[in-house]
Simulated assay, not measured.
Amino acid sequence: MSIEAKYEMILPIIVKADDGVKWWMDPVAAGGAMESPDIEAGIYSAWDSRGQMIHIGPMDDGGNQPRNAKFMGIWSHDVTCGKLLGSGIQEPEALRQVILFHLTERLSANVSMDMSLAAAVDLLCFLEPAANS
Rank of each mutant, 00 (worst) to 15 (best):
W24A: 08
W23S: 15
G82H: 10
A118E: 12
I54Y: 02
I43Q: 15
K16A: 13
L124V: 04
N110L: 09
D19V: 07
S49Y: 04
L103F: 04
Q65A: 14
A109N: 08
P92M: 01
D114F: 00
A46K: 01
S116M: 02
M59Q: 14
A131S: 15
I43H: 05
G63Q: 06
W47T: 00
M34K: 08
R67Q: 15
I13Q: 07
G62F: 05
P92V: 00
D48K: 04
K83W: 01
L107C: 02
L107H: 13
S45C: 11
D19M: 13
E93T: 10
K6D: 00
K83S: 05
A29M: 13
R50Y: 01
Q90A: 07
R50S: 11
Y44F: 14
G73R: 06
S116D: 04
P92I: 00
R96D: 06
D19K: 15
R96I: 00
S2F: 09
I13T: 11
E4V: 01
G73T: 05
D114W: 01
L124Y: 14
I74D: 10
L124W: 11
P37H: 07
V21H: 08
I89H: 04
N110Q: 15
P37C: 12
E91T: 08
S133D: 15
L11T: 06
A17R: 13
V121R: 09
G88H: 00
M53V: 00
S108N: 15
M9W: 00
D18R: 13
D114H: 04
P129F: 06
L124A: 10
E8M: 00
C125Y: 02
M72V: 01
D48N: 11
N68H: 04
Q97E: 12
L127T: 02
D38L: 12
L103A: 10
A46H: 05
